[in-house]
């Protein structure tokens, strides 16, 4: 694989397809099962969980832009350290920005913020997509993946906070869905994260299996 030659650009893809594929069909977290550590770690609160999805998305956008512009100058042998350094730069910038403008979110995300550096999705998109593609598809890819990420993080955060506390805290608003006496605190504890994610992934793969078997019958 030669990443530094123009001839090796991937065949012309449908830009719509590039954008849409990351949202549901190849959802980075719930279908591809990447980025499991942060989604387990920050999803006990809906707003923080969505915030984490958005911050990760911005990092992906930044690295995808940088890599797609500079991809042809990066020698293939040292592409991994180069990509990691670019990702680490983006993460450091985002960490400083969050610390300056959203200190509460910064405190809530804690160690998971610098750990975006070792998030497989960011590296996967940079190495697997942006390195071989032009600027526009890379931006669309990053946006699609970001929407997929925010959906997944939002869903996890919503389910856990709802079941665990009976209410969804939206910044100043506190939407109470059912009284706190009926809430199961287990869901905001670490164990709840594993169980909720396991059930969501299990439901998705059950749907996929039943779809596949239906298609087989029709064929």
């Amino acid at each position: 694989m030669e990443a530094n030659a123009d001839v090796n650009l991937a065949p012309k893809q449908d830009l719509n397809e590039v954008f849409l594929v990351g949202i549901i069909r190849e959802n980075p977290v719930l279908v591809m099962l990447l980025s499991l550590c942060p989604i387990l770690g920050v999803s006990s609160n809906f707003v923080n969980s969505v915030g984490m999805g958005v911050i990760t998305g911005v990092v992906i956008l930044f690295t995808n832009i940088m890599i797609s512009l500079s991809g042809r100058f990066i020698p293939n042998e040292i592409r991994i350290p180069v990509i990691i350094t670019i990702i680490a730069t983006a993460v450091t910038i985002m960490e400083m920005l969050t610390n300056a403008f959203l200190p509460d979110l910064h405190a809530a995300l804690g160690i998971f913020l610098p750990l975006i550096v070792v998030n497989c999705i960011v590296f996967g998109r940079a190495e697997g997509f942006a390195l071989k593609n032009k600027l526009l598809p890379s931006i669309l890819d990053a946006l699609g993946i970001t929407i997929g990420l925010v959906l997944a993080f939002g869903l996890m955060g919503f389910v856990r906070e709802l079941l665990g506390t009976g209410a969804i805290g939206l910044l100043v608003l506190d939407l109470r869905i059912f009284p706190a006496e009926f809430a199961v605190p287990l869901f905001v504890m670490p164990a709840g994260a594993f169980i909720v994610l396991g059930v969501i992934v299990g439901i998705i793969s059950t749907i996929k299996i039943s779809k596949a078997s239906k298609e087989k019958k029709n064929a």
Binding site: L33, F194, I195, G198, V199, V201, G202, S205
Partner: peptide
Amino acid sequence: IPIALLVVG
């Protein structure tokens, strides 16, 4: 993976 996650839980 799903059952593995439940076991870890």
